[in-house]
């Protein structure tokens, strides 16, 4: 890793100021540090959010669960509040990486990175979350812009993510056996007559909503409603771990399982 200037501001405003030129923001560091070790990133400055108070924590706010950006996956996985309101989200967090990654990795870091095989983007999209930054609020549908790309602008920092509480939701993941990232991850959420289905791991442009699945499930919220569901393999990733055709098949399987698990 190349050396850098380490900064640990005490406020979001100071952090935003420090984000100049080749500076990089660091939350848990679970992606940034490995990336720097491999010299795929060599920032001039690393701006650590760990010194900023009040960025971590989980609270219920009306009909939403609001999770601070620096909240670890482990905290989300074991939060009584989350388990009660959106157990699927706790399960999703509990399946990220491994216990040590969950102890350090944060929701804000995961979302800001928008790894196409990460779990949280599917959770955000399916639950219709709102990403709160130091500048604005962004709907999940508008936030994830493609592989490793988001709507975040210069100096913009995620402070929290707000998840509306659904009637039912479930996340099913087919992990890459080596990296344990998602080869295919499907989150299904139902709120009233609206059903949202988000797929991670599979898409060439990162997380996406499966509109055909949503339409079918809006008509009948049952696994059987997805029989014969088509997922266009042309838009899916193909690599040595899974072909696009296999991923397309798995999207259907995981979606059905998620619906079935919703009960």
């Amino acid at each position: 890793m190349r050396d850098f200037n380490y900064q640990r501001p005490n406020s979001v405003a100071d952090a935003a100021k420090a984000l100049k030129g080749e500076a990089k923001l660091m939350a848990g560091g679970m992606t940034l540090i490995p990336t720097m070790k491999q010299r795929l990133a060599s920032p001039s400055d690393v701006v650590d959010l760990a010194g900023v108070k009040d960025l971590a924590g989980i609270k219920k706010d009306g009909n939403a669960i609001v999770i601070g950006a620096m909240t670890s996956h482990d905290e989300v996985a074991h939060s009584a509040e989350v388990k009660k309101a959106i157990p699927a989200l706790a399960d999703l967090a509990d399946g990220i990486g491994d216990p040590q990654v969950r102890n350090r990795g944060t929701i804000g870091g995961s979302i800001a990175n928008n790894d196409p095989a990460a779990d949280y983007p599917a959770g955000c999209m399916a639950l219709g979350a709102t990403i709160v930054t130091n500048k604005r609020k962004i709907a999940a549908d508008d936030f994830f812009k493609g592989m490793f790309e988001t709507a975040l602008g210069d100096g913009e920092i995620i402070t929290a993510v707000s998840f509306p509480i659904p009637d039912k939701a479930n996340y099913q993941k087919f992990p890459n056996p080596a990296s344990r990232y998602a080869i295919v991850g499907v989150m299904v959420a139902k709120s009233g007559g609206t059903v949202r289905v988000a797929v991670t791991g599979a898409g060439q442009s990162g997380v996406f909503r499966h509109k055909d699945a949503e339409a079918a499930l809006a008509k009948s919220f049952a696994a059987g409603a997805l029989d014969g569901l088509k997922t266009d393999a042309k838009k899916l990733n193909s690599d040595m771990h899974a072909s696009a055709e296999y991923r397309a098949h798995l999207v259907g399987v995981m979606a059905k399982r998620a619906v079935a698990a919703c009960g």
Binding site: P177, A178, S179, Y181, H241
Partner: peptide, 29 residues
């Protein structure tokens, strides 16, 4: 079930060059 050292057949680049791609057996496998 899990392990395979794979090179790109044309370029000869090692595709399974780390534990993120070469699948080591874990306790839950």
């Amino acid at each position: 079930l899990l392990e395979s050292c794979i090179y790109d057949d044309k370029s000869g680049q090692l595709l399974t060059g780390s534990y993120t791609d070469y699948c080591m057996p874990r306790a839950d496998d």
